[in-house]
Amino acid sequence: MSPRAAARLEALGFARVHDYVAGQADWGAFGLPLAGERGSETRVGAYLRDDMPTCTLDEQLSTVRGRVSASAYDICFVVDDKRVLLGLLGRRALASDSDGAVETVMTAGPGTVRPSLAVDDARERMRRRDLSLLPVTRSDGVLMGVLRRVDFADATSSTRPAR
């Protein structure tokens, strides 16, 4: 649709016309704000927490266990130096006897959602898969935070989070 609009504007004599081809979906998926009646505040991005523990591939499990114990979580997200989400250390991995590198025991490629997902859709996805928590990543894979079911249990796409 936007290429046709751009062509139409050029035909109307506008000299400097640009087409943001990836559009609004790309904007929202990158966690950038949206205005309007729904806007960003009815999206999962408004309910993110960023206090989750993270670790890197080459860290030792013994180090990571201490970090997780000191947090409000019982899992840990594995990221690279740009915070791209690579894997997850679940409860079983953290409770294991292993003391190797994170990379040897992590679960690779955990499922994620985008910050632009509507809260109703996120709730349904978590309900169907019986998830209490979901990592939220931008379109470039960078971990933005986590969505906890308990934090938005009562929210809908027509309600907004308390500030």
């Binding site: 649709m1 936007s2 609009a5 751009a6 504007l9 506008f14 400097r16 016309v17 640009h18 087409d19 943001y20 081809v21 990836a22 559009g23 609004q24 979906a25 790309d26």
Partner: peptide, 8 residues
């Protein structure tokens, strides 16, 4: 300049 966009 003008930037046009749609959903995707």
């Amino acid at each position: 300049p003008v930037i046009v966009y749609c959903h995707d």
